[in-house]
């Protein structure tokens, strides 16, 4: 059962609005009363995904699905795709331009950081088509702890 499903468009190379979707998602989850440690992990992963959409894709979207047991965050883009996912997942590897690095991003930490913060992580990519990342964050454990007597 889905409690909520929202989609957020992310524009390529627009650093003025970069992060707005993640900020909105963070506020939404807080409003829904999601455990603060889950909100924090999801916010970090979400922002990493959003920045990746801005700097690497030709545009994409973030899809937030809140269920009774977990929250799923999906990032979908149209773009160059990733030729070697294992290499892209390794910390420090980046194809970001010098301009992007000047903005403070592109250190090659993004995908690994998303995987580290999520409870479930999967990535599919097709060169010349785009990339889809799905991250799952469990609500149940946190809620059990919070609700424990």
């Amino acid at each position: 059962m889905h409690v909520l499903r929202e989609e957020f468009d992310v524009v390529a190379m627009d650093f003025t609005t970069a992060g707005e979707a993640s900020a909105t998602i963070k506020r939404l989850l807080k409003k829904l009363g999601v455990n603060s440690s889950v909100v924090r992990r999801l916010s970090i992963a979400c922002y990493e995904a959003e920045i990746n959409l801005v700097i690497h894709s030709m545009g994409g979207k973030l899809i937030l699905t809140v269920g009774a047991q977990d929250v799923t965050l999906t990032s979908e883009d149209v773009g160059p795709g990733i030729p070697d996912i294992d290499l892209a997942m390794s910390e420090g590897y980046s194809t970001a331009s010098e301009d992007v690095r000047m903005m403070g991003f592109g250190a090659g930490m993004g995908l690994a950081n998303m995987a580290r913060n999520a409870d479930g992580f999967s990535i599919e990519s097709k060169v010349g088509v785009g990339t889809r990342i799905e991250m799952v964050f469990r609500l149940t454990d946190a809620q059990k702890t919070e609700g424990a007597v």
Partner: peptide, 9 residues
């Protein structure tokens, strides 16, 4: 983006 990053964390 410094503030966005700060806010997320």
């Amino acid at each position: 983006q410094v503030m966005r990053t700060a806010d997320m964390l």
